[in-house]
Design a protein around this nucleic acid. Structure first.
Lengths: 216, 216
DNA sequence: CACTCGCCCGAGCCGGAGGCTGAGGAGGAG
DNA sequence: CTCCTCCTCAGCCTCCGGCTCGGGCGAGTG
């Protein structure tokens, strides 16, 4: 038996979910909560196996509620079930410890299977959420590959200078670190900028970041 | 009826999966393939609804096989099912268009439910895969939060200027874009640098990047 | 050997970047 | 009305950033 807690500030939604999940004979809705603070209390009181939670709620944020819930001993699984347009929260939601991120356009007949799968320890995502996750991270990869390719065309010394630029050092500071004259550093910078097709050192710094020369 | 194609270079694995999925009366294994090239052919021949595919295979890579398969008309859903240690491919796998990323320690009894959920359009991930996905992106989040906090202290106009800096524009170019005088831009830059505790516009540019003001 | 070529270093010049002071107008809070 | 914040702009000065040119050094090449 999977004990489920529903969390949504709109009671209509809770009621709707209750009827949807009611048809499954291995699922039991053990309670409802209408904001983040209530959610944490309800978890402590009803000890559910799984929580279906909205993100947008008055008072305590859904995100912080998740963090508090998953930190509890014998913590339940938490699935975020929210409206469109909040897909970009996906990374933060997963980082908070959620077991899934679903949009409210999820067909009712799918929901039961999703609950079971999440209960088994797996992570479930709605199509739009996956799309956002991919586009959010694919942009970086494209930039990263371009940057790595551009940097590969540089000499070793030039890369050292580029790294310094990426750390925000001035030419004088760079010269100091690399035991060079400032004018030497300047000439390196100049050649680099043309090689990398950058207009100024700021662009070069971002490129160094993309290429992974510097961390933060 | 869900028509499934199995792709794994080890035939034992295919046979095992066949017996596991055999107990579900809504799933039918319609074929097997033992490398990436075969997988594409088999998809064209058997027209499955869903493909269970290993990543590590001789010849054509699993990743490129996925890309080719999901580009087909009436493409099937593709779930990656592979061994430990390949979790870091998660982003590439999702970007290639996969509907899931499972490890081979997935309990047999879970697999059927996972196939059904993926078939409904959702994305499914194994716990270890989710963990890797989160840690891979959480490193940047630390820098991102610091940056977002710093940027929050700026006025709207200052943020616009900061964005231009992040794109590598000069003061004159920034002034041109925002319909301002160059001296105005300079004063903004000056105040920003002190507010953000940056020595150069290069450091400010990286901060703008971290804060998500600019994409690439 | 002389010649070339790429990489490493450096000087000098000039325009832009950055810091400082000062100041006017628009709008909100008291 | 006054005080305050924010947006806007000017002028000045200093210094850094970026460009051009040039020399030294090692490795190939004919």
């Amino acid at each position: 038996m999977i004990r489920v807690l529903l969390v949504d500030d709109e009671r209509m939604v809770c009621a709707h979910l209750r009827t949807i999940l009611g048809v499954a004979d291995d699922i039991e809705v053990v309670g409802e909560a209408y904001d983040g603070a209530e959610a944490v209390e309800s978890v402590l009181r009803h000890r559910p196996d799984l929580v279906l939670m909205d993100l947008h709620m008055p008072g305590v944020d859904g995100l912080t509620a998740i963090e508090q819930i998953v930190d509890l001993p014998n913590a339940p699984r938490v699935i975020v079930l929210t409206t469109f347009g909040l897909e970009q929260y996906i990374l933060r939601v997963l980082h908070a410890g959620a077991a899934g991120f679903l949009l409210k356009d999820t067909p009712p007949e799918d929901l039961i299977g999703l609950v079971r799968v999440a209960m088994d320890g797996h992570t479930v995502l709605s199509p739009a959420v996956t799309r956002d996750l991919v586009t959010a991270s694919s942009g970086r990869n494209a930039a990263r590959e371009r940057a790595a390719l551009a940097v590969a065309a540089l000499t070793e010394r030039e890369i050292e200078v580029l790294t310094c630029i990426g750390e925000g050092l001035s030419n004088a500071q760079t010269a100091d670190r690399l035991f060079l004259s400032e004018t030497t550093v300047k000439s390196y910078v100049s050649r680099m900028l043309t090689k990398l097709d950058c207009a100024n050192r700021t662009q070069a710094g971002l490129l160094a970041y993309d290429a992974g020369l510097i961390r933060r």
